[in-house]
């Protein structure tokens, strides 16, 4: 009754293993896509409650304000969602599930890269959902710009996700430490990115810090891309910032997972 399984020797192979890890990570997402929609609650609250405040403050119309605000909300989704994804790995380290994958003949790097790549799925789904929700309120996005924008967010998300996993590996079984570090990084990054309020009126030091904040450049690039201004220098800077973050994030993450095992 037992199928004869050939004894084989499987050597680690980065691309193949990354694919298998990615497929595994995507399974819960595909099985339960509504969980993605539920996690949109927070950005929707921002859109619904913060949006009107912005309208009142700027004195502009709703559509115009959304034009400015929606790209920032998209970045915010990535910042909060993907930024927290390391906690999943941390949880798997506390049970034996991560350990089990470490004994498998998988390339160590694939365990991180596959996970980071998986972040693209929720980013794209949630990004499209937010845009769809904003449409009835007069929001308009350039179709090609939106596509490019999602791609930019994907690159940014892979880097951020990798960093979040690296943080999980570094804080190991100290959940409080993970959240402590994560929260104390995410909020300054968010505020200094000009997602919620324009930074133009802020003090000089704030603008100086913001200018080296990659999130800020991604937000600016998103704003330009979604309005169809694809030739703006902000787009170039945004892509540079996101790519740099992805490269650094993956390098740090791969190093962390290699060291941890």
């Amino acid at each position: 009754m037992t199928t004869a399984v050939r004894t084989r020797v499987v050597r680690p192979h980065l691309a193949r293993d990354t694919w298998h890890v990615l497929v595994r990570e995507l399974k819960p997402v595909l099985r339960d896509p509504f969980s993605l929609i539920f996690s949109l609650l927070q950005p929707l609250v921002f859109l619904g409650l913060f949006g009107p405040l912005l309208v009142a403050q700027s004195g502009g119309d709703l559509a115009g304000t959304l034009q400015w605000f929606v790209p920032g909300v998209l970045v915010m989704i990535v910042l909060f969602g993907t930024g927290a994804t390391g906690s999943n790995l941390q949880y798997e380290m506390m049970t034996g599930s991560h350990e089990r994958t470490l004994v498998a003949p998988l390339s160590r790097s694939s365990l991180l890269v596959g996970r980071a790549l998986k972040e693209i799925a929720p980013i794209v789904v949630q990004g499209l959902a937010i845009v769809a929700i904003a449409l009835p309120f007069g929001y308009r996005a350039d179709a090609f710009g939106l596509l490019l924008g999602l791609a930019l967010l994907a690159v940014f998300g892979v880097g951020l996700g990798a960093l979040s996993y690296a943080l999980a590996l570094a804080t190991k079984e100290h959940e409080w430490l993970f959240w402590g570090v994560q929260q104390s990084l995410i909020f300054p990054l968010l505020i200094l990115s000009g997602v919620m309020l324009p930074l133009d009126g802020g003090p000089a030091w704030m603008r100086a810090v913001a200018s080296v904040n990659p999130v800020r450049h991604v937000v600016e690039a998103m704003r330009a891309q979604l309005t169809g201004d694809l030739g703006a220098t902000a787009v170039l800077w945004g892509w540079l910032a996101a790519t740099a973050l992805a490269v650094v994030g993956l390098a740090v993450g791969v190093r962390a997972i290699r060291r941890s095992s």
């Binding site: 099985r31 999943n88 949880y91 049970t95 034996g96 599930s97 350990e99 089990r100 004994v103």
Partner: peptide
């Protein structure tokens, strides 16, 4: 291993 090998979110 001594711990639980399955990831909680997985089927």
């Amino acid at each position: 291993g001594q711990g639980s090998s399955g990831s909680f979110a997985q089927r």
